[in-house]
Amino acid sequence: MTASPRPTPSAQQPRSRIPGSGLAKGLAVTLRTMTRKSHTAHYPDAQPALPPRTRGVIGLFEENCTVCMLCARECPDWCIYIDSHKETVPPAAPGGRERSRNVLDRFAIDFALCMYCGICIEVCPFDALFWSPEFEYAETDIRELTHERDKLREWMWTVPAPPALDPRAEEPKEVAAARKAAEKLAAAQEQAGRPPAEGEDA
């Protein structure tokens, strides 16, 4: 063993010579704690201060959902229920082909099964699922914990805005795409020799 610069344990905590001083110390600790403010969070009376990215519940942004079923298939405990049907959309231009499109009939998450792993949110390729910090959705019956799309949609509005980008960060892809499209349109209209009028489509 190498010689340690630290003092030996017996020198580190000098044993008090007065018998019972440890007992007195114990009493002092509890008495001091009693005179201080308690640490209890008065939850139902006062809301807890949660971090903004708290994983409270999963919200669904229906417009982004394409019924690809990735979330339901990735879910480790199979708590996501999705029903859908196909609809045929008439061709966009005359002479075009009819397209088929998935329409969402049911999207439900059984929060009695959900283990809040967040895999569904991670795998969603179209950003339809989000974490919401909402947490007060206890029920008296376990079956009522299966929440349908309307409830999931309500929770969507409690999802906090994404954190701001770092200064001088790269522009987000979708913003860049939209900006480029707008610029292209403006340039085309200028070349056509007339200013863009209101209410007129390009």
């Binding site: 509890t30 008495l31 704690t33 009693m34 201080r36 308690s38 640490h39 209890t40 008065h42």
Partner: peptide, 13 residues
């Protein structure tokens, strides 16, 4: 109450 406050709690409320 005393035990709760000695443990940093508030006890029955």
């Amino acid at each position: 109450k005393v035990m709760a406050h000695m443990q940093g709690r508030v006890g029955p409320m």
